[in-house]
Design a protein around this nucleic acid. Structure first.
Lengths: 141, 141
DNA sequence: CTTCATGCAAAGGATTTGCAGCCTC
DNA sequence: GAGGCTGCAAATCCTTTGCATGAAG
């Protein structure tokens, strides 16, 4: 995968740097992480990297197709590696639990939209709602 | 609908103010608007309202069930009136066009998740991707 | 008159940008 | 070497908060 990074960077005339390697590695290890979490993770295990570098690097990595982001909260975006199979995120607003589903979950939607001239981005999808169990528990509001 | 506003506010011991009326009206007229756009719209047609009032009011209106928000971009959230039928937003990243679909579009997903103990929030859903036509046009990147 | 609501200004969190020096290729 | 990177700090964008004053019920 680091090879992949090096390769893809080279294809674009971009450079392989330790920061880029560390950041990609952090995203892969954390599974789902915000820029902030990536920063913390990188700092914990190695050199001190700057926050702007994290933002700039995540952008580059996303352009290279090595990571993807989705919005699992009303706050910061969450990044994950494209090494994982494409999946849909389902988030409970109550308990914050995140479930992952394969693309088949939304296959009918993809088909319906395709018939309508639209290509759906399945990996970016975040579905909100709440667990049936959580419905019962007291409202945190 | 203003009656509705007055009624619901009263039920909660809250007050009917001109700002709240104007802001709700703005959301209804704009169909899909960010807090900023709501502010501009209100200011254009009447009194000057403060930005914090817009934020606080949108929050109240959402609690009262009169408006809803969803995320149609990586930036500010978009509010719409609940007078409109519940709908799913489909956004093209290329041309920014927003298509609206009825809940039926995702009925299979709702069913699948329900069987799994999860109640999906259909109105909050935003589906990203791109129009088939836009696929052909030059990449803006 | 009792509270809730608004305006204002300052604080905050997240992200972006300009720039000088550093490091890959 | 040349030009892409990075760190740093300042700038933005969006949103929230504290507080005194104003207004709805």
């Amino acid at each position: 995968m680091s090879d992949d990074l090096a390769t893809r960077l080279r294809e674009q005339g971009l450079r392989l740097t330790p920061q880029r390697q560390l950041i990609l590695q952090a995203v892969e290890e954390l599974r789902h992480a915000t820029p902030d979490e990536v920063l913390a993770h990188v700092r914990a295990r190695a050199s001190s990297v700057n926050a702007s570098t994290v933002y700039r690097t995540l952008e580059v990595l996303e352009e290279l197709g090595l990571v993807r982001h989705t919005h699992l909260s009303d706050r910061a975006p969450t990044y994950h590696s494209t090494l994982e199979h494409e999946h849909v995120h389902v988030v409970c607003r109550r308990c914050q639990r995140i479930r992952s589903y394969g693309p088949d979950l939304v296959a009918p939607v993809v088909a319906a939209l395709a018939a309508d001239g639209f290509t759906m981005d399945v990996g970016h999808l975040a579905i909100f709602g709440q667990c049936t169990d959580c419905d019962a528990s007291p409202d945190p509001t």
